[in-house]
Simulated scan of single mutants.
Amino acid sequence: MPHRFVDHFAGRPRSQEQYAATHRRGDHPDMTDAVKGPASYFPSIEKKYGRPITEWKELIRSSPFVKHGELVAWLKTEHGLGHGHANALVAHTLAEDKAE
Rank of each mutant, 00 (worst) to 15 (best):
M1F: 12
P2S: 10
R4W: 12
P13R: 10
P13E: 07
P13I: 13
S15R: 14
Q18W: 02
Y19M: 07
T22A: 11
H23M: 01
D27Q: 15
P29D: 08
M31C: 13
A34C: 13
P38L: 11
P38F: 05
A39M: 14
S40F: 14
Y41R: 15
Y41T: 09
Y41V: 04
S44W: 04
I45P: 09
Y49I: 06
P52E: 04
P52W: 11
T54D: 03
E55Q: 03
E58L: 05
L59F: 04
L59P: 00
L59G: 04
S62Y: 04
S62C: 06
S63R: 00
P64F: 10
P64C: 05
P64N: 07
L71M: 01
W74S: 09
L75V: 08
L75D: 02
K76A: 06
K76L: 08
E78L: 07
E78S: 11
E78Y: 03
H79D: 00
H79M: 08
G82D: 13
H83I: 11
G84A: 14
N87V: 04
A88T: 05
L89K: 00
L89T: 04
L89Y: 09
V90E: 03
V90M: 01
A91K: 12
L94K: 08
L94Y: 03
A99D: 09
